[in-house]
Amino acid sequence: MYIGLGIALLVIGAILYFAVTASIGGISISMIGVILMIGGVLAIVLSFLQQAGNRSRGITTTRETSVDPGSGSRIERTDVDPH
């Protein structure tokens, strides 16, 4: 989800850092570019960590089969634990 945002921040930050030579009184355009690039990297890293966390949450299924001694029929029981 945040990968697109991270890429956009990286691109905008790189443009501000490497391509813009204008200056505004009291504001460093290149420093804003560095801050945006750091934010973009953080957004991408957090996105990967979030996806890795979602993959580790699995579903555990337990299946038991037994035979009813009275009727001789097979009984199946399935338990699902979504963590």
Rank of each mutant, 00 (worst) to 15 (best):
P69W: 06
G25I: 07
L16V: 01
I3M: 14
F18T: 00
S23E: 12
F48D: 05
G26V: 00
I44L: 06
R74F: 02
Q50N: 07
I24D: 04
P69F: 07
A19Q: 08
S66Y: 03
L16E: 00
I59K: 14
R74K: 07
F18P: 00
I27Y: 06
M31E: 13
P69Q: 08
D79T: 15
I38K: 06
G72A: 15
L5A: 08
T21G: 10
A22W: 11
S73H: 11
I44T: 06
G58M: 11
L46P: 00
V41L: 12
T21D: 12
T21L: 09
R57M: 08
S47I: 03
G33T: 08
L49S: 14
S73F: 07
I24A: 12
S73Y: 09
L46V: 02
T21W: 08
S23K: 10
G39R: 00
Q50I: 03
L49G: 14
P82D: 01
G72P: 13
P69H: 05
R55Q: 15
I32Q: 02
G70W: 03
S66R: 11
G25R: 10
L42N: 07
L5H: 05
A14D: 05
V41N: 02
I7C: 06
G25H: 09
V67E: 04
I44G: 04
L10T: 06
G53I: 13
Y17E: 11
I3S: 08
A19T: 02
R55K: 15
I32W: 10
D79C: 01
I75D: 09
V67Q: 05
G4M: 13
L10W: 06
G58E: 14
S28I: 05
G70Y: 10
S28P: 04
T60N: 12
R55P: 09
S71P: 05
V11T: 15
R55E: 15
S71N: 08
A8V: 10
L16A: 03
S47Q: 05
I27P: 02
G13F: 01
A22H: 12
L46H: 09
G40Y: 01
D68V: 03
L49H: 13
D81C: 01
N54C: 05
I32R: 04
A52G: 07
D81I: 04
S66N: 05
F48S: 11
Y17I: 02
S71I: 12
Q50W: 11
R74G: 00
I15V: 13
I35K: 02
I35S: 01
S56G: 13
L42K: 08
G53N: 15
S23A: 04
L46R: 11
A14N: 08
V67P: 01
I32N: 03
G6K: 04
V41Y: 03
G72K: 15
S47T: 06
S66T: 09
T60D: 12
P82V: 13
A22G: 06
D81G: 00
I15W: 06
R63V: 04
L42I: 15
D79E: 14
S66G: 08
